[in-house]
Design a protein around this nucleic acid. Structure first.
Lengths: 140, 140
DNA sequence: ATTGAAACTTATCCACT
DNA sequence: AGTGGATAAGTTTCAAT
């Protein structure tokens, strides 16, 4: 778990720059590299840190359309559908939520043709509703 | 830009493990560490790589409620509201989208009290509609 | 829990290809 | 555009505190 202010500072720093070296973080917060390393190892083992990701511009990878899709499913189909989600490479995020729609997902597709095919695939399992992303204002 | 299959492999690998060393990536794809380093530097400079992030469990940081909030605004208020978004530390993602709602955001708050206060803050500028996240099924 | 030193690994630069 | 060698920097482990 997050024990003290030093852990908090390490996490704040790592959050925005996961390739920072232990030595660099140590300099920032006034701790030796080995102490930083040990703390980070503990934060990884206790699942406070869930992974290290690289933010890649989907447009520059040929995925020029991004969208949020909301999807309602009949409860009897929910779990079987969720089990198939890994096969949808287009999905960046997917969360189960309260309210009328059961799932909200963020997806990246090549073009509107690809979007159409993706929606058609979803529509076999439920009722997708799409909002195309015009711009990302905050990207964590 | 992404030039060839090797760039693509580097990005796929970095995407899921941004702390991998150049040597480690090189071993994976059959390239020397220096060549990997040069390619990654180019991918950073051409903004294919937009940053390196650490995935932190918000629950373990004391933010036990996450939600999607949709918000419609009058067009005349849109840009002034967007300019104030940086002051909302609770927002993890925010995108402008097509359709009835102008913005979709993902937020992390401490508890339902905090959620209520956050919604009240938004409500001064537009019409927020909230769906609480029950579970994250896919987290990129 | 943190430090500092030792042994190991990686990043960066550059000459060569 | 890639390799391999040299050097500087970083990581990891561990005994001491």
């Amino acid at each position: 778990m997050v024990k003290d202010e030093l852990d908090h500072k390490i996490l704040c720093y790592l959050k925005e720059n996961s390739r920072a070296s232990y030595a660099q973080i140590g300099r920032e917060i006034g701790l030796s590299a080995s102490a930083v390393g040990e703390r980070i190892q503990r934060l990884e083992q206790t699942d406070v840190i869930k992974g290290y990701r690289t933010l890649i511009d989907p447009k520059k990878m040929g995925f020029s359309v991004s969208a949020y899709i909301h999807m309602s499913l009949e409860s009897k189909n929910f779990h079987s559908f969720v089990a198939t989600l890994d096969s949808f490479s287009e999905i960046e995020h997917c969360s189960r939520v309260t309210g009328e729609t059961c799932l909200i997902m963020k997806i990246n597709v090549k073009d509107s043709d690809h979007l159409q095919r993706f929606i058609d695939r979803l529509a076999k399992h439920g009722n997708p509703s799409t909002q195309v992303i015009l711009s990302d204002i905050i990207t964590a």
